[in-house]
């Protein structure tokens, strides 16, 4: 589903013969120059840096504990917009816990799951795609059938089946479950990309010079086939964060002593009518986080897209 974002068919290069106005840059050099001028990139990069800092040092942003429940504060509600960075900035939830502190500490679960799933998926999916695309023949046929089988199971449904087998759920279990079901997307992109790159002249040249197969795959094909994978992986990172929150919301992801936005949303959902703020704060935070990664992925895609140059 998310790969439709990158489905834009490669159009014939319209201005293939543009005389190079400045000195020849690599693909990444061009991309970086484009990115620095793109407001979407700047906003999303700043947001992601902020989210990473919060993930690493949540204590910098709040002195309160996300688990400290004071029933005297039960539903002490409306956000106090003036109380920046204070415990009662966004009010308190049903148990009298600071919503602001829970937002800050909940970042870790989402970002850790998002990044670890992406790392696993890029490594294993990328490996399968590289092998299938490079060797072709029966290797490709077998691996492609395996990919078909995994694609037959909708991502979230599969993750639900895996997670219901566990009772004491940790964030890395959620990551493994999501990676187990999500690697096919990257594998397909990598396979397609490798098949294109494989025919390039420099690969033929390397072969003619007697380079070993691992060397050709790792030094010549991999770096040149990586761009579409990076784009899809960045956008997918946002969808993995959504998946973690959805699983936690359904009661199949992280469970209570853990702090997670999805968990807070599911608890807030019970009191949507009388205390909407308990739901809205984590919901907005989750959406911003997902938005940041998807925006980054789209900015990188636009920068790497030769059509626009």
């Amino acid at each position: 589903m998310p790969d439709t974002l990158t489905k834009d068919a490669p159009a014939p290069a319209v201005e293939a013969a543009t005389p190079a106005p400045d000195k020849a840059r690599s693909l990444w050099g061009h991309a970086w120059r484009d990115l620095r001028r793109n407001p979407y990139f700047i906003v999303s990069a700043l947001l992601i840096v902020l989210l990473l800092v919060i993930t690493a040092w949540p204590g910098l942003f709040t002195g309160a504990s996300p688990r400290r429940a004071d029933l005297a504060n039960h539903y002490l509600g409306e956000p106090n917009w003036g109380h920046f960075f204070q415990t009662d900035w966004f009010g308190y939830d049903k148990q009298g816990r600071s919503i602001y502190a829970r937002l800050i500490y909940g970042t870790r679960a989402s970002v850790l799951v998002g990044i670890s799933v992406t790392a696993l998926v890029v490594f294993f999916g990328g490996l399968v795609g590289l092998v299938a695309g490079y060797f072709g023949g029966w290797v490709d046929a077998v691996l492609s059938r395996v990919i078909d089988i995994f694609l037959g199971i909708p991502f979230l449904l599969g993750a639900m089946v895996v997670m219901q087998a566990f009772t004491d759920r940790k964030w890395w279990m959620v990551s493994l479950a999501l990676a187990f079901l999500g690697w096919t997307q990257i594998a397909r992109v990598m396979r397609g990309s490798v098949i294109t790159v494989k025919q390039a002249d420099y690969v033929q040249a390397a072969k003619a010079l007697g380079a070993s197969t691992p060397r050709i795959m790792l030094r010549h094909i991999l770096p040149n086939a990586l761009a579409p994978v990076i784009v899809v992986a960045t956008i997918a990172l946002g969808t993995y964060i959504t998946a973690e929150a959805t699983l936690s919301y359904l009661g199949l992801g992280l469970s209570d002593p853990a702090v997670s936005w999805g968990l807070d949303i599911s608890q807030g959902a019970d009191n949507l009518r009388n205390a909407p703020h308990t739901l809205m704060a984590p919901a907005v935070m989750l959406s911003i986080c997902v938005l940041a990664f998807i925006m980054l992925g789209e900015a990188v895609r636009n920068a790497l897209d030769p059509k626009l140059r």
Binding site: T242, T246, L279, A283, S287, V290, L291
Partner: peptide
């Protein structure tokens, strides 16, 4: 925005 906002957030 529609792509980024999770289904259950939009629903609520």
């Amino acid at each position: 925005l529609l792509i980024s906002v999770p289904v259950f957030v939009l629903g609520f």
